[in-house]
Design a protein around this nucleic acid. Sequence first.
DNA 1: AAAAAACCCAACCGCCGTGGA
DNA 2: CTCCACGGCGGTTGGGTTTTT
Length: 459
Amino acid sequence: MAKTISNNDENVEVDIDSSKDDVDARTGMKKGPWTPHEDMILTEYVNKHGEGNWNFVQKNSGLLRCGKSCRLRWANHLRPNLKKGSFSEEEEKIIIELHAKLGNKWARMATQLPGRTDNEIKNFWNTRMKRRQRAGLPLYPPEIQAEAIAYNDKLLQLQHQPLSSSSLSFSLLLSSCYPKKIDDPNHYDYNLLENNSGSANNHNTNPCPQFNFSNDENIEINETLALQKSPSLSPYPSSSSNLFNQNFTPPSDSHDYQYSENLSFEHHGFNAGSLYDSKTPASSYASGVDGNFMGNSSMVNDYYEVAPLSHDGKNSGLLDDLVMEGRSISCNKGDVSHKRKNMEGEEYEDEEGIVPLVSTMKKKKSIDESQKKDFSSSQLSTGKKPAQEDQTEELNTMYDDDLDCLLNNFPSEIPMPEWYCRGKSQSLGTEIPTDESGPTNQEFAWTLGSNWNNMPGIC
DNA sequence: AAAAAACCCAACCGCCGTGGA
DNA sequence: CTCCACGGCGGTTGGGTTTTT
């Protein structure tokens, strides 16, 4: 049974029978599963008014749903270009890799998986983690665990290496995130880890002595900062080098965003970086009034297309959109995007990006939040700096200066370690290894230990 | 075949940051 | 400066489905 309800600007048919169930007496809002009719109303509303202002949905459409619920329903189920169905093997690999790097940053992970939502990824991970924990298996492959052990050791070591935080340059820090050249003689040899499985000693030499920190309150900062590409500190030295060794073909064009085809499992356009794939017609990209990209990205036929803009010309506010916008802004600024500096200040062309490691071992309001935000959403559009205290202030004063650099080098590709490439017989976490490649007792002990088990990031 | 366990997933909840009044 | 509304995010829950015993 349906009844027409008059609202401020439209008449809407509301399925009374379905909406009267689960109505919260206190708020008057309906709870529980959405009905197809509610979906239709919300879809029509968003198509007409655009995303955002979710609280107006209820006011203007007659939907007995709160703004949050509307936003969630739209983002997770109704918005265009969502992928349905189970995760592909490639997607699962990406999730594992991203989780090891980012921890439970589902929204950020979702930005690397077009068409997938943070909720899907979270659900996938949680079920997978439970299964593996029940089976007594490590959450990550042994190689990554070994790296994590080394990283943990390094953190402990850093706690006993007092040094003024003033020596910590955010630019240098950023540069430490950059990949080394493929022909860099110092690039990490993945086989070292492979051949010395379980030995963390190989990684205990810090090749980046400039990254020393004071040992007191800054340690929390340290945990959150990206130290990628430092073999002793990064849990993922193997990723890029191995990728280069196996898959990487230098792009014919040095443009930042045109190297996707030969990366990431040789899958076309799997990551956001391929938004700018040269095969995608320029006309496919929506532009805002100022020429900045402001659309929703999705992957169709292996290449991105761009969803229509919101009606008011604003972006949706969803994280991936904002990341895209930020990238576009930086790209429009000039030709600096594919130039990076190594730690000696020499420029070089980059081929890949590494996601900064963010520890989620504990809540760290100040830095953790700013780290979270600076790579992604709100500050890209607002430019507002987070409030920081004393020694973190320096980092933030450098923030604006480095913003372009940061945006330009925001990872577009997530390189995969070798264990991804060993064939389907290797466990992705969904199956139990049956051969000698499985985790050792020592690794089990690690896995079942406190930090790693409580996880989620490298901590 | 039935019961129990495990799995899956949509949705809710609370916290937090942001921005405007 | 404070308050408040809003939106985003991660954690959690609960119910339906599937698999195992």
